[in-house]
Nucleic acid binder design. Structure first.
Lengths: 352, 352
DNA sequence: CGATTCGATCGAATCGATTCGACCCGAGGA
DNA sequence: TCCTCGGGTCGAATCGATTCGATCGAATCG
């Protein structure tokens, strides 16, 4: 165990060839006589040499063969979000043929987690900001300064990053018009995190000023462009439980809304749970709508009224952007359309 | 864009110090006068130098700061499996303080995916076989040959790898005895993949001989030690849909079982769906039991009878094993206990 | 006041491969 | 027969940092 691992030079020496030839024998690039290759491979076998050291190879080549996926929250939360998972899967699938690996990175430094500096020191060829396209993410700048190309999903619209996003505003607006056309006036919003700092609860003006996520901001703007200013409860992360908390909060007040616009399907499921815990029927007593268009097994036969985004395609396209960047190209931004799906969780408000 | 990125040497030259001093100024290890450090940092700022190149640093240090997580199937499938996700989350959490990254690796080479060779060339300090502790995984040997320590979860019991697993046999046996004590004799099994080759359907003797996964094998053995040989339907991956297919298959025959033992909760949910589609009531007409003890929102108020494994702890412990290996130690194997949870999906067989 | 120590800095070796240009030699063309 | 051409091989530079040991001046100690 103490002995050092065999190196390519050692193998070359044993095979009686120069290191350069040994390298050629392994990498396959360049002409090598079959006999020589055999000799090198045999020597490698004798010495227990399992191929060139990835680190040395990467240093020389100038690339690591690794793509970083920045996910904002704890792995657990990101993985509970079907949208994030599908996205990562799409990236992984697109990357697979080239043998590129996917490295999970945590964006926001929290208790015990590595510093942003540390994270940006990871050897990635491209960084994908998967679930946290915050406008002013320091990590984003760090990667760019380092010369690492960045793809931002639903991310900030900056000239130096490639953006893949959906028509957040358009979808949210169409959804809002649907709710309005049913006759609702008293509407409230269960919002995605405005910023990843763990805060939750009712959003006041000060808090509202710092909305850092493009998607969250666009959806909220669309809703308020239809209904005017509405009460907003913020969930600290995109999970059912937090949707339930936000729902309880919104339904507790004296002026109970007749419709709640949740900024994601997971939050919507939570809101529905909160409503039912209070004895409210959905949609008879309360209309609840979501965003994303994921499977919602929690709801049984009911179909959530929501905006369906092309998740799988988003993932695939993101993956393609990455491979293009790896190939040295500068791909154009992509803006995907969404579609309103009217389900069984929206209805006219109860007549008083 | 064409100009080469600044190097530490360039920064050192501009600051009027030697590269060694500049290195010290960045890494912080070793004594550097404050004034000197300032000068170096200023030079770095001028040159747009964002810190040492991770690849070079890794080569010199001999470690990459990356841990590989080998997940057997497509990302999408692994992420749909709450057990796998919780495991990864636990690892990520344990790794977080040290700033170590988690690299997702696909174990089994399939269409379009990188070869096993390619995967084993990733610069990882430790490899965790997260959801695919196949006994004879070639990837496992490749990593070991390369000198990369391996942690196998539910993995093969080999002297050269660290194993974290649960009492699969014990749990499955207790579960089987529970089912037997209810009076069931005609029992069938909906099995996890015996091997990751996409095959599904009824398992004959030839197929049975190649059970490659320790957990799957142990659970099956325990069931048959109680009931004797039973019909087995194999799911090609651990998702609800495949459980449903397996369920339909098992329920289709002339000699319909009165109880189906699913090797995971996800499969059990699928089996229940299949049963209900056939007009069978669970548990009155059919007993269905699972394994894992995850949340099953699909079942509404019903509680699955299952074996609960300590998922979160498994993840944490796996993470700890990894950090110990990174510290150069050789941790001992861990074997976690499980617990039978009797829910509302098991009952005596219908009287004829 | 001479000897010792400590802090700050520097030189040079090293990590392990890749790759460019040069070189050699045998075969084919003029 | 001489010249080219190209397959096969080798030397040496290079990728970009880290780190060990040496050096040097200043401060401390006896």
């Amino acid at each position: 165990m103490g002995e050092h691992r065999a190196t390519l030079a050692a193998v070359a020496a044993r095979a009686g060839v120069s290191p350069s030839t040994a390298s050629l024998a392994f990498s396959g690039s360049g002409p090598v006589a079959d006999a020589t290759r055999e000799r090198v491979l045999a020597a490698a076998r004798d010495l227990g040499y399992a191929g060139p050291d990835p680190l040395a190879r990467s240093l020389r080549r100038g690339r690591s063969g690794i793509v970083g996926a920045v996910i904002g929250e704890r792995l657990l939360y990101a993985f509970r979000d079907p949208v994030a998972v599908a996205l990562l899967d799409g990236i992984a699938e697109a990357l697979s043929p080239s043998g590129t690996g996917l490295l999970l990175l945590s964006g926001d430094a929290q208790h015990g987690s590595p510093t942003t500096e540390q994270v940006s020191r990871m050897p990635v060829d491209v960084a994908v900001f998967a679930t946290c396209g915050r406008d002013d993410d320091p990590l984003l700048d760090l990667f760019l300064r380092r010369g690492v190309p960045v793809v931002a999903v639903d991310g900030p619209d900056r000239p130096d990053v490639t953006v893949v996003d959906i028509d957040d505003y358009g979808g949210a607006a169409e959804l809002a018009r649907h709710v309005a056309s049913l006759g609702h006036h008293r509407v409230a919003v269960a919002a995605l995190p405005l910023r990843l700092d763990g805060r939750s609860g009712r959003v006041d003006d000060a808090r509202r000023a710092i909305v850092g996520f493009a998607d969250c901001r666009a959806r909220l703007a669309a809703t308020e462009d239809v209904f005017g200013p509405v009460p907003v409860a913020e969930a600290p992360s995109n999970v059912v439980e937090e949707g339930e908390r936000a729902g309880r909060l919104l339904l507790a007040g004296p002026d109970r809304p007749t419709a709640i616009v949740a900024q994601s399907d997971l939050l919507a499921v939570g809101v529905i749970r909160a409503a039912e815990a209070l004895g409210l029927r959905v949609p008879q007593d309360l209309t609840v709508v979501g965003y994303d268009g994921i499977d919602t097994p929690w709801l049984g036969e009911r179909l959530l009224t929501t905006v369906v985004q092309p998740i799988a395609e988003k993932g695939r396209l993101t993956g393609r952007m990455v491979t293009e960047l790896l190939a040295g190209q500068r791909p154009a931004n992509v803006h995907l359309p969404v579609r309103l799906r009217v389900g069984t969780t929206s209805a006219p408000p109860p007549s008083r």
